[in-house]
Nucleic acid binder design. Structure first.
Lengths: 118, 118
DNA sequence: CACGGACATTGATATCTGTCAATATGTCCT
DNA sequence: AGGACATATTGACAGATATCAATGTCCGTG
């Protein structure tokens, strides 16, 4: 296959002025929405918060599973979504998988909403 | 009916430390998620952006309808969702209805993600 | 090499969501 | 009052999503 330029949703958000400075385009909206959607779930919000505030700013899936009354595949599904959107980074160490928050991604999203400098 | 204390999602978010400072509770997550979900759609992102950057920081529904290739009920549906979540304020003037962005709401959401002071 | 444990994938299902056509509501003008 | 227009509500439907049970994959250990 051709070597197409592949950007994560996060990377495509980073370039944008705040929502409030000028109307965003259809294309921008369609790139940003999946990122926001990745956050728009109570389980994923808690996952992100758990990981971000965990010692070493990272957490093993085993820890996360224990924190919810949900099946292991369900947690795995949410983690995959967060990772796919670029909000979480993934590292496998031995048998365990560790996730950490992509702070820049969260920051960009925050700047998008919060006004910032534009 | 009894005079129960009713908070919009926005009002319940404003109180929270950033996601990254400590693990949010189940209850917090369930209050925050609807607010994020209200943003998690390309049409609603564009609506918000259009209104925020419009002259006078407000826009009439008629203007908004024209900006999309969607039916009038669909736009009305999205506006209702944004208004219900507290992200948009609504004012009827004569036959027209004007929406404006609740900047504080956006700001709170931004702070929730962006770290802030905690 | 076989087993067990950690995590991911698949397939099924119930619920939620975005959309539109049709209709209702409310307001101004004549 | 009646008609025209702006917006909202309802009902229906297709597609997305959250969840689980079952199964697969990968790695370390005995």
């Amino acid at each position: 296959m051709p070597k197409t330029l592949q950007l994560t949703p996060v990377e495509t958000v980073a370039c944008c002025s705040p929502l409030t400075s000028e109307p965003i385009s259809l294309e921008q909206a369609e790139r940003i929405a999946p990122l926001v959607k990745a956050l728009a779930d109570p389980v994923r919000l808690r996952l992100l918060s758990l990981i971000a505030s965990h010692a070493g700013q990272e957490a093993c899936v085993c820890d996360l599973n224990d924190a919810f009354e949900l099946s292991q595949p369900t947690i795995s599904h949410h983690l995959k979504l967060l990772h796919g959107s670029g909000l979480l980074e993934r590292e496998k160490r031995g048998v365990w998988v560790y996730y950490r928050v992509n702070q820049a991604a969260l920051g960009d999203l925050s700047a998008l909403l919060g006004g910032g400098i534009g």
